[in-house]
Amino acid sequence: MAADPYTTLGVKKDATAAQIKTAYLKLAKKHHPDLNPGDSKAEEKFKAISAAHDLLGDAEKRARFDAGEIDAAGQPQAPQHPGGRQFYRGFADGEQSGRYSPGFGGGGGEGFQDMFADLFANARGGGRQQRDQPMRGQDQRYQLAVTFVEAALGASRRLTLPDGRTLDVTIPAGLESGQTLRLRGQGAAGWNGGPAGDALIEVDVADHPFFARDGDNIQLDLPVTAGEAALGAKVAVPTPAGPVNLSIPRHSDSGRQLRLRGRGIPAHAGRPAGDLYVTLRIVLGTPDETLERALAAYYDRQPLDPRAHMGVPVSETA
């Protein structure tokens, strides 16, 4: 009993004619017996695929099959694949095989000696020649984790390799995560006087608890008190290169961005130094009764609706 032709072609029952054709072509190319002389099952598979396509590729036959009028085996053999067909491989793999052989004939004789000469050239002469030639050593890959600040400012790190060697790695300023450093001649040794390979070091930059990279600029959220924001203040701000003083202008609000020019990634590779962008975040702390009373009195005098632009009702006092 023949298998379901839809299963044979690997298509769904509602596949379009184009899908059936595509599936057939893919399978037929894969299993054509003449393209697979060493696969004894290819002929059987190819015949099944062809039969399935003869049935499903013909709209009328497919409709009759779907309607149950004919079964998968009940349709006649396709004329181009009669049961007794002799595939090409039967001849090409047989007595007459020399007819289409390129170069050396398959029938032995002179051409066959050529093949042996070829094989031995590869197995011996060629191999030895290759071993005697100077060859460059292989590149070796390593991974190195560095801190945010090391990558921002540049640093020197000593890397201990699995074989016990140590490598001094210079991390250039402004290095970004995922970049690869190439250390020439620090890979595997060469053969027969050939040059050593390179060491390729992929650098993974760790996140920082409060700095964030934005190209050559750095972003920082800076906590300030309500007093510092309202009254103005001079505060110390961390930068990758160390703390600097920043003047917070009087009447600053939360979210205000201040720029510290040249305090981002230092100048490198012909690019000028980046900036440090400081975003103020007002921290209230734990209000006591004095502050509570002062705030209540203040907003009684100076009503403020910071959500006015959002189109929501003014909140009621707690």
């Binding site: 072509l25 037929a28 190319k29 054509h32 003449d34 393209l35 002389p37 060493g38 491989r89 090409a92 793999d93 095989s97 020399g98 289409y100 052989s101 390129p102 170069g103 050396f104 004939g105 398959g106 029938g107 032995g108 066959f112 093949m115």
Partner: peptide
């Protein structure tokens, strides 16, 4: 199988080499 004529010589050449190699291996 929709192998275009310009591609056929390539396919035939590879097939001929495949069958020749099989014949040699058998020998």
């Amino acid at each position: 199988l929709e192998v275009e004529e310009p591609t056929l010589p390539l396919v035939l050449s590879l097939l001929d080499q495949l069958y020749a190699t099989r014949a040699q291996l058998r020998l």
